[in-house]
Structure formats: structure tokens, C-alpha cells
Design a protein around this nucleic acid. Structure first.
Lengths: 374, 374
DNA sequence: CGGGTCGATGTATGCGCATACAGTCGCCGT
DNA sequence: ACGGCGACTGTATGCGCATACATCGACCCG
């Protein structure tokens, strides 16, 4: 690694000019085959790799898209980091750690990323990711913005003014977030309201339930608000009384849901159905209901929202609404591409359809469904 | 977006030189407060975002690390892509799709990425990802290599010669892969052998099992080979007969494991313990053993490897070895940093310690462990 | 009151590549 | 034999920024 070779070195070695070297790499068919071979040989010998920075500068575009996520771990301070595992430690043998290996919030981020990467790859674009954490997330995001041709941001991870600033330079699309006032970004969301409405309608129409209680998430979560609205819409359509707010609010975590559930049980005021704003909440309730010997779905029907894998193996399996996270990433990148091609496009608001998954916990699927794919 | 503003525009607007603008951004304390304010104002007004490409070029380093993964989805051809979900579709209501939301292989990639991102963020580095898929993965990787200051590659995703070529320009660390011949990269791995050995020793010593059968994965998977060796080592230590090869081989998928299991059942030749090379395999066996009414762990003890979440909710819960995937990512980035600081460092081989998780399927934890965190 | 010092700012240059434009060469048609 | 044309290749320039170095002024000391 004495000195990283450049086009000049390659050109000299191959006995050509730098223009030819550049052409061999970018438009091979404009170069005579022999010349091309010479250049390729020189590249191999020198270990030449074109500088992305120089390329980006000269071409006025980087060929990279940015993906910006919130900090699901809540690690804002480097000191918060768990101590790194180090070599030389022996193998630990412990009894049931009980902790899931993957942080639940990270799960769906992974899917979004995968979708985005997939769609980017199709177009020959690279993907750069950033997690907006730490004391100065704006700086981090601006930094990212300077390196990419377009930016997809998960809702609520970047302050509006920063986003607006960035949008003057490159296209920005907001994923899973409502349009705020006059913002001119594209928005790609999941149709929370329609999903929850369909699910609730199913409970009412197909299971004949009329006493449905909504267990919400954080009051400031737009997703939660939309789901509640969907639930209300279904109630209204069925001519049932529509509440003005969720009966209880958790924070989307299983643990909090469990304490809510205990509270509910203590009050002794069980409805016929619990419509939860996300799967973790539903699973938390399921834990406590099961522990209390209350039958789900016979005594209480229970539903979630998200479609996490844990709902597939719970007992009973969890009826829920699957969010197309991979599609969210794909759609975001697709939209970025479109807008990069034509910046004059009017801001779009896209709502991706969801899918209601009927499983045991709402009363469907009376028999166990272990045997699939056999 | 008429024309993206540059330092020149900002300088003119602020009535300074471009050097001052640059300094305001990079070393604010070398600029008088008033001047700084002027520049900041100009930046806001113009919507200026520094070009990462230009910066990288001038500074001779990009501040980005590359992460390269194999293609777990097996999507090599754009045509293979599932049709994108489109707007306007109605909400689908379906009975138990049964498909997990997240591709299992993607699960651990997500963790590695998260670890890498975390560690990179601490140092102010950005992360760029690439999935080596498609017809010309080498081109993709070289492209990536040109844009970053260091590259972490998951084993077997990039041909050796390409990697060697890249390593002449930037530091390369291989994750979860053995050193091949003379390669000069750093290697960070998980201690497969030690983990499997500890697990097997546990079965022998603590549960008194002496008839243990190993169910392997693909014959060309280095991980599998190491795990088999660990298993053999434990057998040897206990004075048991050491096989020369796994009794059966799957391909690390649950479905294949199930057919292996059916075959085993048909043969009617059940050992006292099945030591599986990964969790999916173990779960596949569990499916069929349960279906056949064979008690786990009473009749057959069963263990996996990886520590995926599904093993936490299976019945019985799955004894396994947790791989520190997040740590793998962190360690890789840490190593890259070290090497970037001192390129003369000798190639390191780091083996991260694993953790054996004892759960029900090996015979431990006689009572259910539902109530945690209560 | 001159030389020296230090802080703040400007000037000039190069980073490595893409590409517009200008040759160069061989060949064809007239 | 000459103009013209097409296929290749070379020359020159700019992309936007960081930074070494020069400059400039205020201030201090003797």
C-alpha cells in the first residue's frame, strides 16, 4: 500500500492516456480490444481501484442512496455501549438467558433496509445507512446527505427543518410518516387505518363480537393514532359506540403491556375482545391472560398489529396485520429514483396495502396449524 | 434545486473566502465568532450541504466503511423479485399465512450490521452496505471498495483474488471465515468449535448421555465443519467413539431438516441425543419428533446452534449456542479502525467467545420458564 | 517607534476522475 | 490524389473541497 495507484499510474503502465483508462472502465466498447486488454492488465498489476470520491465529484453524482433510521436501541452515549466481548474469555454456559437475540425494533428496520437495498441494487445504486443517534444527529444526517443522491428517512428521525434543508439539495422521501404541514417530500406509508379497520370489522362481522377494547401505544406515535382511527371507523360502520380515546395506553413494549394486563385483570373488567395497537402489546396481554387462566380466544379475543414472527409461535397464534416493511423500503427507493429522474414531480403520498393475518387468537383457525410445508 | 450551492457560493454570500467557509465547518474554533455566524447564516439561506465526494477527494479519505454480505435471499436476477405491492390494492384478509416475516438468514445479517454501525458511529464513520448478488458481484464489490476506507466482508461472499486486489488499497477484514492460505486480511470469527464442544460436554457430563448423533449442515460450510470438530473433541474427551463424519447432513434449513427427521424416524434408529449444527435444523427435527409423539428431551435430547429467537418460544425451548453477531460486527469495525491507524499491523485472527444457552430441550430447566421479568 | 508575534483570513494548489473537444490514422468515394 | 468520414485516442479542464502558505492587522515589548 505504498501509494494507491490512480488513473495516471495505470495509463502510464499501459502506455495510454488517462482518458482511455477511464473509458475502458466506463464505456468499454469505445476502446479497441487490444488497448482494453493492456489497460486491464495494468489495473491488475497495480491493484488499481477507482476512487469513488473522484468519480462522484467529476460525474456530479455519487450513485449512492442514503437510508436514515431512528435509534431503536436508545444508545445515545458511547458509554452506554455494552462492553465488547473479548477474546480469551472462555465459553460461558448459562441457563436460559431468556433474552431475544435480536432487538425487536431492529427487526423491521432490517426488513426496510433489505427492501431498499434490493431495489437499489436493481438500478446499480449503493446504499449507505445512518442511525440518527447521539447528541448531534442532525450533523450526522447532513453529513450523510452530502454523500448521497437521495435520502430515505424513517419518520420522526430527523427534525423537519433539517430535512427541508437537505431537500434543497437532494430528493427526500419519508417512510412511515404523515406529511407535516407544507412539506414537499414524498411520503410512503403503510395503510395502518385500513388494516386496523379490516381487522376490527372481521372481529365484529365474522366473530360477532361487539365489546371491543383498544389498547393503544404511545400517544405521540402517528402509527398508533392511525390504527385507532381505523378501529373507530369499523365500530362506527357497525353502529357500535365509538370511544374518543384508547381504553389504555402502553408504549409498544411487551413488558409494559403485561403490567397493563395485570391492571386490567385486577379491575376485573374484561371485555370480549382486546384490539392491540401492536404485536408486542398483544403478546404481553397474552402472557398475563394465559397466566391467569383466561382462555384466548374463547373468553377474550386478542389481536395485534405488525406481523412479527413471535406471533406465529405463540399459543394461541396471534391474529394480526402484517406490515409490508420490505415493500416500504423498496417503494421508497423506487420513488427516489423517479424523483431523481424528474425533480419536477409533485410530492406523492403513497399508502402501501397491508394484509390481515387471521390466526387462532381472534377465534379463527380452530385447529392448530403446525403442519405446513410437509 | 436550480444549482446546488458550493463553498464558493457560501463564501460570496458571507463575504469571505472559501477557506473560511471550509474552516467554519471543520475547525470552527479557528474562526472568529462573528465570521462564523455570517457563514452559518449564508449556509442556511442557500441550503448548502458540503459535497461528500469533494471532501473525500481532498481529504484523501471518505470516512466510510464498507460492509459486504452474501445474498441470503438468493435473488440474483431482477426478474426473480416478488412483484411490488402497489397502491390502490385493497386490504387482503387471509388465513394464517404461516410464513415468517423476516428471512432467517437476514436476521443475523441485521445484527452484524447493527454492531458495525454502532461501532462506526462511535468513531464518526459512516457505513455503506452491499449485497454481493447478481451476475457480477465482483464489480459491485470493487465499486464499493473504491468508496470506502475499509471493508468488512462476510466470509465466502467475495472471491479471494478480488479480495486480495482490494486489500492493496484498503484494509479488509473477513468476518466468520477461516484464513485461506496466505491471505493477509484480519479475520474475526465466532468460536464455533469451543461452543459446540462445551455444549456436547454438557450433554455428556450433566445429562449422562452417551449416544449423541450429530446432524450437520452443508458439507462446504466452514462453520459446520468447526462445529463438528468441537462435537468430536467433546466425545474424545469423554472417551466415546468419535465418528469421522456427521451422521446426516441437511442444508441448515428447517424444511430439509424435517425430511431428514422423517427419514430417521422411518429407520427407527433413534439415538438418545441429536446435536444439530444449527437451530433451524434442530427445530425441523423437533417438528417431526413432536408430531411422531416422541418426547423431547425425555426420549431424545435435542440441541441447536445460533441462538435464534424461535428457539425461545418452541416447545420445549431449545438449548443452543448463541453467536454474538452484534459483537462480530463491532469487532470487525474496531479492527478496521486499528488497521487504518497502523497499516503495518500483522494480520490478526480473532475468535469471539460464544455462550451456551441451556434450555429445556437438552433436559435442563424442568419447569416452564414463561414468567420472566414479572 | 520599529521589529516581532499571534490570531484571523485570503490565495493558490492538488486530490482523481469524466468528458468535451481536438487531433490522428486508415480507408472510401470520386 | 484529395476531401471526407469513422474509429480511436490524447489534451485540457473542471468538479468542490482541504490545506499549506502567504498576507494582514493588532498588539506587545524593548
Amino acid at each position: 500500500m505504498a501509494k494507491t495507484p490512480t488513473v495516471y499510474d495505470v495509463a502510464e503502465r499501459a502506455g495510454t492516456s488517462i482518458a482511455t483508462v477511464s473509458r475502458v472502465l466506463r464505456r468499454p466498447d469505445e476502446v479497441r480490444a487490444e488497448t482494453r486488454a493492456l489497460v486491464h492488465a495494468a489495473i491488475q498489476e497495480l491493484g488499481y481501484v477507482p476512487s469513488g470520491a473522484a468519480r462522484g465529484l467529476a460525474a456530479r453524482q455519487t450513485g449512492v442512496l442514503g437510508l436514515c433510521f431512528p435509534d431503536v436501541d436508545g444508545i445515545d452515549d458511547p458509554a452506554d455501549l455494552p462492553a465488547p466481548v473479548r477474546v480469551g474469555q472462555t465459553v460461558e454456559v448459562v441457563t436460559d438467558a431468556g433474552q431475544p437475540a435480536v432487538h425487536p425494533g431492529n427487526l423491521y428496520m432490517g426488513e426496510v433496509m433489505r427492501g431498499a437495498e434490493l431495489e437499489a441494487w436493481r438500478t446499480g445504486l449503493a446504499v449507505m445507512i445512518a442511525v440518527a443517534r447521539g447528541a448531534e444527529p442532525s450533523a450526522l444526517v447532513s453529513d450523510l446527505a452530502g454523500r448521497v443522491d437521495g435520502l430515505a428517512v424513517l419518520s420522526a428521525t430527523v427534525p423537519d427543518d433539517v430535512l427541508r434543508h437537505i431537500a434543497r439539495r437532494i430528493p427526500v422521501v419519508v417512510m412511515a410518516g404523515p406529511r407535516t404541514e407544507d412539506d414537499a417530500h414524498d411520503h410512503i406509508s403503510v395503510d395502518n387505518a385500513a388494516g386496523m379497520r379490516a381487522l376490527t370489522a372481521h372481529l365484529i362481522a365474522d366473530h360477532g363480537l361487539r365489546e371491543l377494547r383498544f389498547i393503544g401505544g404511545p400517544a405521540d406515535a402517528p402509527d398508533d393514532a392511525e390504527r385507532f382511527l381505523g378501529y373507530c371507523a369499523a365500530l362506527a360502520e357497525a353502529g357500535l359506540t365509538v370511544p374518543t380515546a384508547p381504553a389504555m395506553r402502553g408504549d409498544f413494549t411487551r413488558d409494559t403491556a403485561r403490567s397493563l394486563a395485570r391492571q386490567l385483570l385486577a379491575d376485573g373488567d374484561l371485555p370480549r375482545a382486546l384490539v392491540c395497537s401492536n404485536d408486542q402489546t398483544a403478546l404481553g396481554f397474552l402472557d398475563e391472560l394465559t397466566a391467569a387462566g383466561i382462555e384466548v380466544p374463547e373468553r377474550v379475543a386478542l389481536t395485534g398489529f405488525d406481523g412479527i414472527d413471535a406471533g406465529l409461535t405463540s399459543v394461541p397464534t396471534l391474529t394480526t396485520v402484517r406490515q409490508p416493511m420490505l415493500e416500504l423500503g423498496r417503494a421508497a427507493v423506487e420513488r427516489l429514483r423517479l424523483r431523481m429522474a424528474d425533480p419536477a414531480l409533485p410530492p406523492a403520498t403513497i399508502n402501501l396495502p397491508v394484509r390481515v393475518l387471521l390466526r387462532r387468537s381472534c377465534g379463527c383457525a380452530p385447529t392448530a396449524t403446525l403442519a405446513q410445508s410437509t
